[in-house]
Computed example of a mutant assay.
Amino acid sequence: MVEEILARLVAFPSVVGTPNGPITNWIADYCRSHGAEIHVLPGPEGDRANLFASLGPVDVPGYVLSGHSDVVPADEDGWSADPFTLRAEGERLYGRGTTDMKGFLAAALAALPVLAARPLKRPIHLAFSYDEEAGCRGVPHMIAALPKLCAEPLGVIVGEPSGLQPVLAHKGKASVRLDVTGRSGHSSRPDQGLNAIHAMVGVLADAVALGKDLASGPFDPRFTPPYSTLQVGIVSGGRALNVIPERSSAEIELRAIAGADPRALLEPIRNRLTALEAEGFGTGWQELAAYPALALAPDSALAALMGELSGQAPCEAVSYGTEAGLFQAAGHDAIICGPGDIARAHRPDEFITRGELNACLSMILALAERCQA
C-alpha cells in the first residue's frame, strides 16, 4: 500500500512556489476516508495551503509527524524517465520527491488505516506544509495555528531523509537578495554615472570578509564545518561593456551554528548596503528565506523515544536545514528522523528503496503502539 500511495504523491508535480491544491486535496480526502480530523490551512499566497490531520483525542498531548509536500523542479538533465511517474527497478523506486520527502509522507499516510483501528490514548497528527524548498515559507502559518488545532505536542518528528537515524541539531539559515541602483551612461564618462556594480563590489567585499571572520569562531564541534558560514551565491548586473551599469544584484546566504541568529549576523552587510544611499545609490534588501537552528537536548524524552523506535543512536547534527528549528523556536521539542539519504535529494533519478519505506512505516506503527499505552 505504501508504494501505491507514493506513486500517487509523486504524480502530483507539486513544485515549490506553485499552487498545491491538487495534492493537498487528495491527501485531505484520503485522511478523511480513514476518519482523521482535517484542517486545510490556506497561506497568504491564496493558491497554497498547509494540511493538518489528527487521529486520536486532540485535547491530549501527542506527536506530530511533519513533512512538506513540495519538491524542487525536475528540469535538470540526467533523468532516465519521467520524474513525475514512479518507476521501480529492483529495490529502488525512482521519482522526484521520493526521498525529499514524499517517501515519509507516503509512510505516514499508509499508517492511517492501522492508526484508525487502534484505541489511541494519545493522538498522532500529520502536519504537511508547502514551500519548504523555498526556505520553509509555508510552515510558520501552520505553527501559528497549532494551539487551536491540538494540545501541546509531546514532540514533533520531522521526516527529512536521515536514514531513519534521529538527528538532534542543524544550523540556522538566512538568505537575502541585495539590489543596488545607480545611474547609467557611456563608459567613457564614468564621472557622469553611478556604477552599480562597483558599489556592489564594496558590499560583497565586506560580506566575504565577514565570512572569514565567522571561520574564527565561535565554534560548535557538532557541525561540519564547526562555525557559521557565509556564501555569495549569485551576482548579476550590467547590459554592455561600454555602458555604465545602473543595476546590480547579489544573493547571499548565512548558515549559523546553534545559538547564533543568522539574521543578526547579516546586519553589518545590510548597514554597508544602506550606506550607499548617501552616495546617491538606491538600495534594496529582500529576505529570501530564514529559519532558526535546531538544538534538541541529547537527554530529552523525545531523543530517547526516537532512539528506541528507530533502533539507532541519535546523530548529533547535520549540515542541511529543516522545519524542525521553527517548531523548536515556537516551543515544541522537535527532532529529524526520516527514510532515505539526503545525498539523493535534488538530483536526477532521485530514489528511495522499498526497504527504507517499509522501515519508516514500521517506525510509525511502533509510535502508535506507544500512544495506546
Rank of each mutant, 00 (worst) to 15 (best):
L214Q: 00
P262H: 02
I143D: 00
Q312V: 10
S248Q: 01
P225S: 09
S236P: 07
G46H: 10
M101P: 15
S175Q: 08
Q192K: 14
P262V: 04
S162Y: 06
Q192A: 15
R247N: 08
G325M: 03
L326H: 03
A145S: 04
V208H: 15
A207K: 09
S129D: 02
M101T: 10
F223Q: 01
V167G: 10
E369T: 11
L93N: 08
L309Q: 09
A345G: 12
V201T: 12
K148S: 15
A275R: 13
A205H: 11
I5A: 12
G237V: 07
V114Q: 14
P190C: 01
R189Q: 13
I27L: 10
P245T: 12
A107L: 04
L168Y: 00
G211C: 06
S162H: 08
K148T: 15
A258E: 00
R239W: 06
S187A: 15
W26Y: 07
H186A: 08
A49I: 00
E279D: 15
N25I: 08
I336K: 05
S69L: 14
A313R: 13
V158N: 03
E253R: 08
L105V: 15
R96K: 03
S216E: 14
W26M: 12
V158G: 02
Y63T: 01
S66N: 13
G259I: 07
Y227H: 14
L178W: 11
W285L: 06
A49G: 04
V58G: 05
P57H: 12
V2W: 08
R48K: 14
H34D: 06
V201E: 09
T229I: 05
G90C: 03
E279H: 12
L361D: 09
H141L: 11
L168K: 03
Q328L: 00
L115T: 02
S216G: 15
D77M: 01
L194H: 11
A106I: 09
R8N: 15
M1P: 15
D299L: 01
P119L: 12
E133K: 12
S362H: 13
V64E: 05
S33G: 14
S129T: 11
F104H: 06
C136S: 13
A303K: 00
P57K: 04
G193T: 06
S216V: 03
L361Q: 14
T229H: 11
S80F: 12
E76I: 07
A107H: 12
M363W: 03
A207G: 13
L276G: 14
D179S: 14
R270E: 04
R87N: 12
D47C: 01
R354M: 03
N25K: 07
I5H: 10
T229W: 01
F327A: 00
T24D: 02
H332I: 14
G193C: 10
R255L: 09
A334C: 08
D213G: 05
M200Y: 09
R189L: 12
L276M: 09
S362G: 14
E152V: 13
L120Q: 08
A81D: 11
